[in-house]
């Protein structure tokens, strides 16, 4: 039985280390990270640039493999997955929101979200896609191409695409990094709502203010987890955040 099931956690990391070998020497991006994330909560992974937070996210998302350690997510031992299993894991367990949106330029907003639903094998992907775009308040932009949308709208489409997969874990890498404050708050509110709706949302950011809306804050520094705790002063509504 994977340890996270025993503890009720949906994500569990045990002594996860990631080393990169470069011509200049070995860089330890993540050093013996151990972490347990309960289901249906919003976790903010906080840290300065180069602290290893994106590396952590990539390994939870099976975009990268750890050098050492064990990762379990939603009952699956990610570190044991190979080849097709990793693809299936990404299709059905986790989903991503990227800082640079990464929408498909040839597809409209609706089609981009449709892709997410289809990739995860959901039934009636067209209805799901439409519903998700309505949910992120883009019902009036269904047939617009990415280049016809603002940055905030593009990121909302990207979130809708991730949500359309129906996967239990949403991994967001600096989702507000390219957005202004107002739009950023809109996005965070969406993510908060998803966590409230039963998803587990991991947000990677260097913005300390964002950490205040989390249920749990994981702080990284120099590749090491230096703190795991709820935010001091309790969880705020995204509308209360200021930066």
């Amino acid at each position: 039985m994977p340890p996270e099931e025993a503890s009720g956690a949906i994500i569990a990391l045990s002594n996860v280390t990631k080393r990169f070998v470069t011509p200049a020497g070995t860089v330890v991006a993540l050093d013996s990270a151990t972490l347990s994330v309960p289901a249906a909560c919003l976790v903010v992974v906080l840290g300065p640039s180069g602290s290893g937070k994106t590396t952590l996210l990539n390994m939870i998302g099976a975009l990268d493999t750890p050098s050492d350690g064990v990762i379990d997510v939603a009952g699956k031992r990610v570190t044991d997955l190979r080849g097709a299993q990793r693809f299936a894991y990404r299709r059905n367990t986790v989903t991503f929101v990227f800082q640079a949106f990464n929408l498909f330029p040839e597809l409209t907003a609706l089609e981009n979200v449709h892709f997410g639903a289809e990739a995860a094998g959901r039934s009636s992907p067209a209805e799901v896609a439409r519903a998700m775009l309505e949910a992120v308040e883009l019902g009036h932009r269904l047939h617009h191409f990415p280049h016809e949308l603002s940055g905030g709208e593009q990121q909302r489409v990207a979130i809708a695409r991730s949500l359309a997969t129906g996967n239990p874990v949403l991994l967001a890498d600096e989702p507000t990094g390219e957005l202004d404050y107002r739009t950023g708050i809109q996005i965070l509110r969406l993510l908060r709502q998803r966590a409230g709706g039963g998803k587990t949302v991991l947000v990677v950011t260097h913005n300390r203010e964002i950490a205040r809306m989390a249920d749990l804050v994981v702080e990284l520094r120099g590749g090491r987890i230096v703190g795991v705790a709820p935010p001091a002063g309790g969880t705020l509504d995204p509308a209360e955040l200021r930066w």
């Binding site: 498909f104 330029p105 040839e106 409209t108 089609e111 892709f115 191409f145 990415p146 280049h147």
Partner: peptide, 27 residues
């Protein structure tokens, strides 16, 4: 490049394209 691709006038044609199959099949 990924934002330059759709700036052509044919964008509207693509919008109207009703192709069978999934989005990846249409890609």
């Amino acid at each position: 490049p990924h934002l330059r691709g759709g700036r052509h006038r044919l964008s509207s044609l693509v919008r109207r394209l009703r192709l069978p199959g999934s989005t990846t099949a249409q890609a």
